[in-house]
């Protein structure tokens, strides 16, 4: 009897995880559907003008506010790209050095230090980006005659890239270590040097797995909130220039929801539509990325 009761409790606990997922999906879809009653899906996904502010006045709900999310998607992509340009080479090369060259002692120091980078709260990165990096980049730009916006995509992306280095390096490290030594020996036995072996045998064998890791990193960058809220722009700006200020999906969610307003104005509902888009994008990236990583982590077991 007790046995069955405990089993029932355990089972219901495990169902909580399912309820959370259902809760997320249901709340996002429900609120987003209400949003799409006033704004067409087509305008949301393909519109290039984002100015939700004008919808603040109650008598104009949805009428004059523009909810074309393309500038947000482009801004998110731009900042994520900058972040990836920083973190992918640094992360992968760190992983190569750690797994192929570093002594055990060096490894035992460097790995925890990299973990620290991953453990620093994002709000701290945000502060750092806004207070240190952004002004520095702006001044640097000015000194060489380039106009760098104070809230440039570059500053936010750069700091976000640093945040993602440990994610990429630890996944790459796992994947590179999973490449069997017999391949390295085969190559060295043919007279290849160490770096030739790494570049022409180890890396090609690890590449798909590393790519999976990069997908996970992109997902993290896309969903990252605090760095961009603090260091990126607040107003939509459709541009591919990393020196200009752009805004992102997550920034707009925060901007739309942190004022004092009624719960069901188009502005609030738009945040849920953005949330739904964010959830879908990161979900797809995560599922594909983690499948690939899993496969290549275990392929030689």
């Amino acid at each position: 009897m007790v046995e069955r009761l405990i089993r029932a409790i355990l089972f219901s606990c495990s169902a909580v995880a399912i309820f959370i997922t259902i809760g997320i999906i249901a709340s996002l879809i429900f609120e987003a559907l209400r949003f799409f009653q006033s704004v067409s899906v087509f305008e949301f996904l393909f519109g290039t003008e984002w100015s939700p502010q004008t919808a603040l006045r109650a008598d104009q709900v949805g009428a004059s506010g523009r909810f074309g999310a393309v500038p947000l998607f482009v801004g998110t992509a731009l900042i994520s790209t900058v972040a990836l340009c920083v973190s992918a080479p640094l992360g992968i090369f760190s992983a190569i050095y750690l797994s192929e060259y570093a002594s055990d002692t060096l490894r035992s120091y460097v790995k925890p230090l990299l973990e620290i980078l991953a453990g620093i709260p994002t709000v701290v990165y945000g502060f750092f980006a806004a207070i240190v990096i952004a002004p520095a980049l702006s001044n640097l730009g000015a000194s060489i005659g380039l106009e760098v916006a104070y809230e440039s995509a570059l500053a936010a992306g750069l700091v976000m890239g640093v945040m993602i280095i440990p994610l990429i390096s630890s996944i790459s490290d796992d994947i590179i270590t999973a490449v069997p030594d017999s391949l390295r020996e085969g190559s060295r036995g043919l007279g290849a040097t160490k770096s030739e072996t790494i570049r022409r045998v180890v890396l090609p064998a690890a590449l798909p797995g590393i790519a999976g890791g990069i997908l996970l990193a992109i997902s993290r960058a896309v969903g990252e909130t605090m760095i961009v809220v603090m260091a990126a722009g607040l107003s939509a700006n459709l541009t591919f220039n990393p020196l200009e200020a752009v805004t992102t999906v997550t920034v707009q969610i925060v901007v739309l929801l942190t004022g004092d307003q009624e719960f069901d104005s188009s502005k609030t509902l738009a945040a849920f539509a953005l949330g739904l888009a964010l959830f879908c994008i990161t979900m797809v990236l995560n599922v594909i990325g983690s499948q690939i990583v899993k496969k290549y982590r275990e392929q030689y077991d």
Binding site: G189, G191, V201, P204, A205
Partner: peptide, 26 residues
């Protein structure tokens, strides 16, 4: 030296490349 002294290992260890690329590697 290792170009002159080739080696074949206990466990067959072709590179995860095409047949052609494996032979062309050296």
């Amino acid at each position: 030296l290792r170009r002159r002294i080739g080696m074949v290992f206990q466990k067959h260890n072709p590179f995860p490349k095409s047949i052609y690329e494996n032979v062309a590697y050296g």
